[in-house]
């Protein structure tokens, strides 16, 4: 283990090197391409121009806050939470699983762009209609993954629980729940990205005069592409940040899992 401990930071650092190189190369090609071909910023602004524009937009931060905290986060928690609950109920009662799981799959086939204006009509122009869209988007990945995770337990583990005369609650708490965590975190990772996309796209279809989606939707038709791109970059940054938070939580709660084991 001691050898593994000293090698670990190096290995983690090395993990980030290839994507970092690709990222820098991509930016370089973009920057040089825009300059070399004299592409006007209303078509495609250079990365350097976007970088300089971001601090000049005062409303960007309040828009980002609105989209993330008022819309994406509640929707993410609602969709993931209900998704997990449905998976638990479906695991507990086969009848419920047969009845509800096909409909859970239906939510996945709802065209979200078509649903956005309907959601505004149903839940109003404020954050609620956006959060609902996000909730619908994030519900299915959680149901699917959590249900698989809760049912990924070894039959012998269940027989063991039965031999201890453990009740259903204890079997759930001590066996099914921990076994499901790697799957649940997978869903949460997918859902961070989906939540940002859902909230931004939902803002295109009427709503409050705030939010990153609203901002992009306003600036792009004005050909203020450096501003539109700035909002996109900020949205990306928030998405990556949220993803990293989930990854850190995942490492804390599932450090025992195969994917995180050292050389042990």
């Amino acid at each position: 283990m001691s050898a593994g401990n000293t090698a670990r930071p190096l290995r983690v650092t090395l993990q980030f090197v290839p994507p970092a190189i690709v990222f820098v190369l991509l930016l370089a090609v973009w920057e040089l391409g825009v300059r070399f071909f004299n592409i006007p910023y209303v078509t495609l602004p250079a990365p350097s121009r976007i970088l300089h524009t971001i601090p000049t937009i005062d409303e960007l931060w309040s828009d980002a806050y609105y989209t993330t905290v008022e819309e994406a986060l509640p929707g993410f928690l609602l969709g993931s939470g209900i998704g997990f609950l449905v998976a638990v109920l479906a695991t507990r009662w086969t009848f419920f699983a047969r009845g509800i799981l096909p409909y859970a799959a239906v939510t996945n086939s709802i065209p979200i762009i078509g649903m956005a204006p309907i959601s505004v009509a149903l839940f109003g122009a404020e954050w609620q209609s956006k959060a609902v869209i996000v909730a619908i988007l994030t519900f299915f990945p959680m149901v699917l993954n959590a249900y698989r995770g809760l049912n990924s337990v070894d039959p012998l583990s269940l027989q063991l629980m039965r031999s201890y005369a453990a009740n259903g609650w204890e079997t759930f708490l001590q066996l099914r729940l921990p076994a499901s965590l790697p799957f649940v975190f997978n869903a949460l990772k997918i859902n961070t990205t989906l939540a940002m996309i859902g909230a931004i796209v939902a803002e295109y279809f009427g709503g409050p005069f705030a939010g990153l989606g609203y901002y992009i939707n306003n600036e792009a038709p004005e050909l203020a592409m450096d501003k539109a791109w700035s909002a996109v970059v900020v949205a990306c940054g928030i998405g990556i940040g949220a993803y990293l938070i989930v990854v850190i939580l995942e490492r804390i709660f599932t450090s025992w899992h195969v994917s995180y084991r050292g050389d042990g």
Partner: peptide, 15 residues
Amino acid sequence: RNYGMVFQSPVLYDW
């Protein structure tokens, strides 16, 4: 709780 069970695989909980 009269039975202690041991199977062919250890069935230990990884966590």
